[in-house]
Write a protein that binds this DNA or RNA. Sequence first.
DNA 1: GGGTGGGCACACCGATCTGTGTGGAAACGC
DNA 2: GCGTTTCCACACAGATCGGTGTGCCCACCC
Lengths: 185, 185
Amino acid sequence: MTERAPMAERIMEAADRLFYQKGIRAVGVDAVAAEAGISKRSLYDTFPSKDALVAAYLRQRIQPFPASDLPPASQVLALFDQLFMRFAIGDFRGCPFVNAVTELAEDCDAARAIALDYKNERRRHIAGLLTQAGASNPDTLASQVTLLIEGAIASMQVRQDPTVATQAREAATVLMRAAGATVSP
Amino acid sequence: MTERAPMAERIMEAADRLFYQKGIRAVGVDAVAAEAGISKRSLYDTFPSKDALVAAYLRQRIQPFPASDLPPASQVLALFDQLFMRFAIGDFRGCPFVNAVTELAEDCDAARAIALDYKNERRRHIAGLLTQAGASNPDTLASQVTLLIEGAIASMQVRQDPTVATQAREAATVLMRAAGATVSP
DNA sequence: GGGTGGGCACACCGATCTGTGTGGAAACGC
DNA sequence: GCGTTTCCACACAGATCGGTGTGCCCACCC
């Protein structure tokens, strides 16, 4: 148990690259082991099954939202700027959680639970910011902003045009202004 | 060639059910043949490969937007009502085009082309309606309305809560009003 | 230096995948 | 009645899937 951490760590890095880029169903366990530079046997000594590996991959994709000293409305709009930058990089392949639910289809229960955790947390985070910004209906508005984010992601995946992020940003601005939130010019 | 039509037809019905509900990668050719009540040999006599079958499945999913005598803004909002009804049925599994692009990942070129055809046609259709409604920026607004549609679909797939459609509808109403379109109360 | 254990290479299992080849049984036209 | 076409049942090919069993080697610890 000296430093088994690098073991699981390397596996997760490889799984993240492969699962996200090529798809969960399209990537076999052998490919993950090869990408990680370890044997399949070692992989199965660390994760009991591919399902467990997939679950770990998804859980690792959940990262907390960093605190910021920007005005709350700007923080919401910054989400779209971050989206735009991720779109422009070129290796964007959609939302890993939505993709997992789509790919796993009838076996997506575990994946959906993890996806729900993330989406709920993000919506609560946005609702908090909108409350600070003085929006009259922060919960509904947070859902609508979330819809724009998800829509931009889905549209980007088929259109491959990063400007959908800026269009979503403008729509979010209109919605926030209409809800009485103070958004900087 | 007497009545081979029912042959391809039955295959397409089976493929549509299976591919949409269980996923393209998760459904084998044998399963499609069994669901269609034909032999695998007959399937391969009609479609040369699974790829061709998938392409036909996607192409068949493109249906023209029916004409309507409702006011144009109401026609746009009616899209969200239709979405809500499809969500409430219970067998909703996302947008087949986005799902195909997601599932096929690195081999999604053909699927993406078909998906683009559909999405572009829908956006043009919406832009036309918004022009009739007197929106000041029909093209951008059509993109934003599309974002709300795609977002509602993606959110529905993980949250399984049909009310996302009504939230999207309300957001679309706000955006259309802000763009100067005449939308009935 | 001798033991111990973690990791690897490799072979293997049964199942499933796409795609093909074949023989025979119905249904049809003449 | 006969030939032709259509389709099915079935077996097969080669590859890949998730998952396991085994034996060896090398590094580390005492």
